[in-house]
């Protein structure tokens, strides 16, 4: 494990904690896309099938369980918690899941490293994770009025992806045979989706004003 990978995992964990903190303490999910959260739950459920078949390390198993439990809890909170669900902005969060899920699944059937159920599910989860943030970005663009925690949540997710790219570069130069085109390209696409958001995030940070996205 290198420093970029560890920092990436920690920012990913921090993003989830920020979101849970917002939901749990403020009892509000305003500005949070349920669609994106449901897609993440699907991403983790399909990627971590290897929990049942392979043991990598205690760290690996624990982190996988944390991401699974937290993503399903967030979905549960937004859908079912009697106070939190009232703050869900259903009319603005209109992105359709299958626009993303179906193409990703078809792509995973065609472009994968091995044609097995576990492998296709794993590849599908990579493609889906790359685009799962889209409903959230659309929602941010629509509501424009972004609270600090939501802004920090998206920023931390973007930071996590950027650090994973540094991790891949590091591993490519330090580990023999470390070449993973599917992981790299989907990860790069995912990070690029944050570029626009990052630009406005840093602008607002630099000028010390509230984050607002242009319509």
């Amino acid at each position: 494990m290198n420093i970029f990978r560890l920092a990436g995992d920690m920012t990913h964990l921090a993003s989830v904690l920020v979101l849970l903190l917002k939901i749990h303490t403020i009892k509000s999910c305003a500005g949070i896309s349920l669609k994106t959260q449901e897609l993440y739950a699907l991403v983790f459920a399909t990627r971590y099938l290897d929990l049942f078949t392979d043991y990598i390390s205690l760290y690996n198993t624990l982190m996988k369980l944390i991401f699974l439990v937290s993503s399903f809890s967030i979905v549960w909170y937004i859908r079912h918690h009697k106070i939190v669900r009232r703050s869900y902005d259903k009319d603005q969060d209109t992105f359709r899941h299958y626009f993303l899920v179906l193409p990703c699944f078809l792509l995973a059937l065609v472009i994968n490293e091995k044609f097995t159920v576990k492998e296709i599910m794993w590849t599908f989860s990579l493609y889906l994770e790359a685009v799962a943030i889209l409903p959230q970005l659309v929602l941010l663009q629509r509501t424009r009025n972004i609270d600090n925690l939501t802004g920090q949540y998206v920023f931390l997710l973007g930071a996590y992806r950027s650090l994973y790219i540094l991790n891949w570069i590091y591993r490519y130069f330090t580990e023999p045979h470390y070449v993973h085109w599917i992981t790299w390209i989907s990860g790069l696409v995912q990070t690029l989706l944050y570029a626009d958001f990052f630009y406005y995030y840093f602008q607002s940070w630099k000028n010390n004003v509230k984050l607002e996205l242009p319509a």
Binding site: R5, S57, M63, K118, E119, N167, Y178, H180
Partner: peptide, 10 residues
């Protein structure tokens, strides 16, 4: 792919 190095990532 499954069972190789990239699978230690999350």
């Amino acid at each position: 792919s499954v069972n190789d190095d990239v699978h230690d990532e999350l």
